[in-house]
Computed example of a mutant assay.
Amino acid sequence: MQIDRLLYPVHSLGPGDRLAIWIRGCKKRCFNCANPELQLFNPNSEVSMTVIKEMISKIDKKIDGITITGGEPFCQAKDLFEIITFMLEITDDILIFTGYSKKEIYDLNNDYAIKCIEKATVVIYGEYVDELNDNHTPLIASSNQVIEFHNPKINNKYINYMNNGRIIENFYYNDNLISVGIHNSRRKKGENTKVDKRN
């Protein structure tokens, strides 16, 4: 599986001490994407599932939840399903960010993608639209996105978390400073959003 980074503990992408995984590859090319460096696939980022599981197993503290983002997680749906299945032995809180709508995921005709949705606790669907970023809604980067809860037991945990607003954290990782969380739009006041349709 092509992953770019794995960080713990992350508090800006869901409630509790979370393990966050950034998956490489995305075809959406959203304007002002938060992680444009993860849009391209990179064979040098390939990590075996055995190694990924070993890395996760070495975390000796409680993992309250896992957040999977990217890139586009559903571009690697088979491996994503394997990670989710493994993580459900550790936590019942699996959050996935995807640029696809729910309909688009079903239109992929990929059984693994559908299984991932069914196993996830929370899925946030939808492309990032820069002009719809209200600069304050937590977990939802732009108002077109939809959050779907699959486990009523965790609803209050997420509602309480989201009442605190957006959180940004900085991590020093691989000699780089990485800013993690739902960021405000970078456009200037009065600036129109441009859509980049490159493939």
Rank of each mutant, 00 (worst) to 15 (best):
G99M: 12
I66T: 11
V10A: 08
D111C: 01
M162W: 03
E104P: 02
M1T: 12
D93A: 03
N151K: 13
M49H: 06
K157Y: 01
P9A: 07
G25Y: 01
G99S: 15
N164F: 06
N110M: 09
G14M: 03
D93W: 01
F149L: 13
A20E: 07
S143C: 05
G16S: 04
I83R: 09
P9K: 03
I147H: 04
N156I: 06
I66R: 00
N151Q: 12
D17S: 13
I167V: 14
S179V: 09
A120C: 01
A77S: 15
I124L: 10
E104Y: 05
R24S: 15
S57D: 11
I63Q: 10
N163V: 00
G165D: 11
S185R: 09
N44K: 12
G190A: 08
Y161A: 12
P15H: 09
K119H: 06
M49L: 15
T50D: 14
I147C: 05
S142V: 05
K197F: 15
M1I: 13
N176Q: 15
I3S: 12
F97E: 12
Q2Y: 02
S185L: 05
F149W: 07
L88C: 02
N44G: 08
L7W: 01
E54H: 07
K153D: 09
L13C: 09
G16P: 02
E82Q: 09
C116L: 05
N110D: 15
A77V: 04
F171R: 08
R198T: 13
N133E: 06
D64E: 14
D79N: 14
K28Y: 12
K28H: 14
P152Q: 04
K78Y: 08
Y8I: 01
Q145V: 08
K194L: 15
T50G: 03
E89R: 13
H11R: 12
F149H: 10
E89K: 15
L19V: 10
N164E: 15
P73N: 07
L177I: 13
I182E: 02
L95W: 04
I124F: 02
